[in-house]
Design a protein around this nucleic acid. Structure first.
Lengths: 113, 113
DNA sequence: ACTTTATGCCTAAAATATTGGTCAAAAATG
DNA sequence: CATTTTTGACCAATATTTTAGGCATAAAGT
């Protein structure tokens, strides 16, 4: 029934749609049947169908695994250096000053860029 | 409890970790509290915490909405042209030949690039 | 044209993600 | 350094996703 459990920003829907389409395109290109792909991902065909429609309620792990298996680039990079990127990020964060975000009465709610 | 309902490829885990870290970094940068962000996304703080750890079982919609709200670029682009990209994709696909993927006994299972 | 396979869509049941609440420790504030 | 706020972790109850299965239609193979 596809219950609308939460309302998301238009941008999110577009991103989802795009992502799903990239995956579907890759699937066809590789000539994998829905069953095949679903099986490889480790989910049911029904869920895969939701995924291919861009359903926001599907687990992100299923999306990413699909992309990985099909070779759809995640975060710009297609190669394996993704692990490195993650680690860089990790460090960059742990080194940063504020561990927790604190606020009092009146302070700038938004600090852009 | 973080049940390990399925086993994913290392690359997927790395991507998830990276994504979560990007979001967390952006949150701190903007000085939003976990409560604040969770509320804006429309999820509980508990779920947000799973998300910030890179939990694969969290709905992709929550991830993407978080990224959107925090300005974390999705698919390389930060601006609004994401909608256009989606539409281009859409058309590119519907115009393509094979609607369904068919196979018989022996044929090339993998057609790379 | 006929046969086979893939896809789209629908259920009820089963599995599990999400929630709201609480607590202790950590971090920022004044 | 005392106070306030944020964060990390946990839990039981609930809401929701996921599943298996079936059926009709569409597409591809022979």
């Amino acid at each position: 029934m596809q219950t609308k459990r939460q309302t998301l920003s238009p941008r999110t829907y577009h991103a989802l749609q795009l992502f799903a389409n990239l995956i579907e395109e890759a699937r066809r290109h590789r000539r994998w049947t829905q069953r095949e792909l679903a099986e490889r991902i480790g989910i049911s065909r029904a869920t895969l169908q939701s995924l291919l429609k861009g359903d926001p309620s599907v687990a992100i792990g299923s999306y990413f695994e699909a992309a990985t298996l099909l070779g759809v680039p995640l975060f710009g990079t297609d190669s394996g250096n993704l692990a490195d990127l993650a680690q860089q990020q990790q460090q960059r964060m742990t080194l940063l000053p504020g561990k927790t975000v604190h606020r009092n009465e009146e302070n700038l709610p938004d600090d852009d860029f």
